[in-house]
């Protein structure tokens, strides 16, 4: 079980989402991706895509307007 952290702070949509999609492809089931974002639309479209894809998703607001989207590949 690995944990991968991607820093997408300051990246505008859709960059965080594409980064997450590419990372998930390379990961094994059970691995966890921590995506750091501060683009308000990314904390909506990333979890939305991940849930539709069937992964476990959690969002944590780590600072004002800064989030960690935690995705466990399923």
């Amino acid at each position: 079980m690995n944990e991968i952290i991607i820093d997408a702070l300051g990246e505008a949509c859709p960059v965080p989402l594409i980064k997450a999609q590419n990372a998930i492809k390379e990961m094994a089931v059970g691995d966890v991706l921590v995506l750091q974002v501060d683009h308000s639309c990314a904390m909506k479209n990333v979890p939305e895509w991940a849930r539709k894809d069937g992964h476990n998703v959690e969002i944590e607001e780590v600072d004002d307007g800064e989030w960690e989207v935690i995705i466990e590949k399923a």
Partner: peptide, 13 residues
């Protein structure tokens, strides 16, 4: 409570 000045991170941006 989500306001924050978000700085430009790279030359690409």
């Amino acid at each position: 409570s989500q306001f924050k000045i978000k700085k430009i991170k790279s030359k690409k941006q």
